[in-house]
């Protein structure tokens, strides 16, 4: 039984502009949710709120484990992750980027080596392990961001537009990675896309962001 996630009556506004308006939804473990909606509809704000990067004005985000509500602390943050649309790649090697999440958790060097290698192979960047991350293409950078998040085995895996502004070859690779994650993990996977066909290919549940609320598509 993995994490359960529910957003309950959340309101969030920026400079008086309401973005999330009484937003509620329960996400079940082991399912992949694909969220669509026009620019500015609050998709990214929703993800940042779910990832505990932002606080809501009112309402709450509830993570439960076996029915028990979890505190929004470091222990919980280490069970979830969000791949940001601008990935936030560190100015170092590909390997060190992926190793970061494990290193800050105090994982042993040998285990880091093995897990990073696996994650890089999974995203097709094994051969670029010692290259500087700044030398990667846009598509490879997106894949690196996914590998960096994958390696920590998150129970809630959020991806904010993982295939935006990249070519079709890289898009296909990333879709394969997400499909494989769906099969292999009991995680809740949430992703944002503007491509309806991609949403169909990847999602168990298709959602739409409308008027600051999540509605089934």
């Amino acid at each position: 039984m993995g994490l359960e996630l529910e957003i309950i009556h959340v309101f969030r506004s920026y400079n008086g502009n309401p973005i999330l308006r009484d937003c509620s939804f329960a996400f079940a473990g082991g399912r992949t949710y694909v969220l669509q909606g026009p620019n500015g509809s609050g998709k990214s704000t929703l993800f940042r709120t779910l990832a505990l990067l932002e606080k809501s004005d009112s309402g709450r985000v509830e993570y439960r484990d076996g029915g028990r509500i979890l505190a929004a602390d470091l222990a919980l943050r280490r069970r979830i992750t969000l791949v940001l649309p601008r990935t936030g790649i560190f100015n170092t090697t590909v390997f060190k980027n992926v190793a970061y999440g494990l290193k800050i958790r105090g994982v042993s060097r040998a285990e880091i080596e093995a897990r990073v290698n696996d994650a890089l192979l999974a995203v097709g960047l094994g051969h670029k392990k010692w290259q500087r991350a700044s030398e990667l293409s846009s598509g490879e950078t997106k894949r690196l961001g996914i590998a960096r998040a994958m390696v920590i085995n998150p129970e809630v895996f959020m991806l904010d537009e993982p295939t935006a502004n990249i070519d079709s070859a890289n898009t296909a690779i990333i879709e394969d990675i997400i499909l494989k994650m769906r099969q292999d993990r009991q995680a809740i996977i949430l992703m944002i896309t503007h491509d309806p066909a991609q949403a169909q290919r990847l999602g168990d549940d298709l959602l739409l962001m409308q008027d600051g609320k999540i509605i089934p598509a």
């Binding site: 943050r77 992750t81 791949v83 990935t87 936030g88 560190f90 970061y100 999440g101 800050i104 998040a149």
Partner: peptide
């Protein structure tokens, strides 16, 4: 870039680790 700090948080950094990531 502020996204570096956010990336460190999303990967599970403590406040000190997040500051170190920015300084690094």
């Amino acid at each position: 870039d502020p996204v570096i700090r956010q990336a460190a948080i999303t990967l599970g950094a403590t406040p000190i680790q997040e500051s170190l990531a920015v300084v690094r």
